[in-house]
């Protein structure tokens, strides 16, 4: 075990799932899933289609409420918290089926997220007081910065629904980053990207962790992407956790191979 990993192991868990469970009618979409993510991790969540990965994200971000079990962010229990509260605490996400604010420009999309922690009051916005104007300017400047990081500054004024798919995915990441999260959840960020784009995205995600100090949890079907990027991986199948560990362990785990082969990949 290298020093870096040892330090990480000592640091506090950012996110903990403890026997998290949710059922829809008779279907356990996620059942007794437990794992924890340390600060600074690049953590992967994989599994065949319908395994319950996106549902895990929904449990963490408060879209769904767990039927049983606990989701903890640091020491705070997230069960039953509203999504916007959870975002405020420092968890931001992207969506598998892109959910941008489609008729708004790329910049506006990011500004919405960036206004999360603004201090100027609603009244000052309605009366267009200097405090609101100034803060809006600052948020916009930060949003432009983020667009630059995601290589999107040239399309800031384009309506987000008019963007090509890959750029929409990157814009979603920029938008999530704008809320200044501690933990960033990415749901299949490389889906629909060509190898070059995906390569570049890998570098960007690493940069988000290293430079911006975010902890990242990502879902991805592209094994090369996950294995190259993530330091720890949890594998779900039919809602249950079947394996966890480093990329090498996962690659050679017979259960994982079976889960994927059973699906005839």
């Amino acid at each position: 075990m290298g020093l870096a990993e040892e330090v990480r192991g000592l640091s506090q868990a950012v996110l903990t799932l403890d026997k998290a469970t949710i059922r829809f009618g008779g279907l356990f979409a996620v059942r007794d899933v437990s794992f924890s993510i340390q600060s600074g991790d690049l953590f992967g969540l994989i599994g065949p289609n319908g395994a319950g990965k996106t549902t895990c994200f929904n449990l963490i971000t408060g879209v769904y409420k767990p039927t049983a079990g606990v989701v903890k962010f640091g020491d705070t229990v997230l069960n039953g918290q509203a999504p916007n509260r959870i975002c405020e605490m420092g968890i931001a996400r992207t969506f598998q089926n892109i959910r941008l604010f489609s008729s708004m420009s790329a910049l506006e999309n990011v500004v919405v997220a960036g206004s999360l922690r603004q201090k100027s009051s609603f009244i000052s916005a309605l009366s267009y007081l200097p405090s609101a104007i100034k803060e809006t300017g600052e948020i916009r400047a930060r949003a432009l910065e983020l667009l630059k990081v995601m290589d999107l500054e040239d399309i800031a004024d384009v309506r987000s629904c008019d963007l090509p798919y890959g750029k929409q995915r990157r814009l979603e990441i920029a938008r999530a980053m704008a809320t200044d999260p501690t933990l960033l959840l990415l749901d299949e960020p490389a889906a629909g990207m060509n190898p070059q784009e995906s390569e570049q995205l890998m570098r960007t995600v690493r940069r988000i962790r290293d430079e911006f100090g975010k902890t990242v949890l990502l879902i991805e079907h592209d094994m090369k992407f996950v294995m190259n990027l993530c330091e720890r991986i949890v594998v779900l199948d039919h809602g249950v956790e079947i394996a966890s560990g480093g990329p090498a362990e996962i690659r050679n785990n017979p259960k994982v191979i079976e889960a994927y082969l059973g699906e005839a990949v």
Partner: peptide
Amino acid sequence: QTAHGLGFLAVREDEIASSAMGVN
């Protein structure tokens, strides 16, 4: 004209995404 107002537009566009981005 202010960041507050964009939150209103965001709610129109997509409630789930807005709340995930911290819009109340």
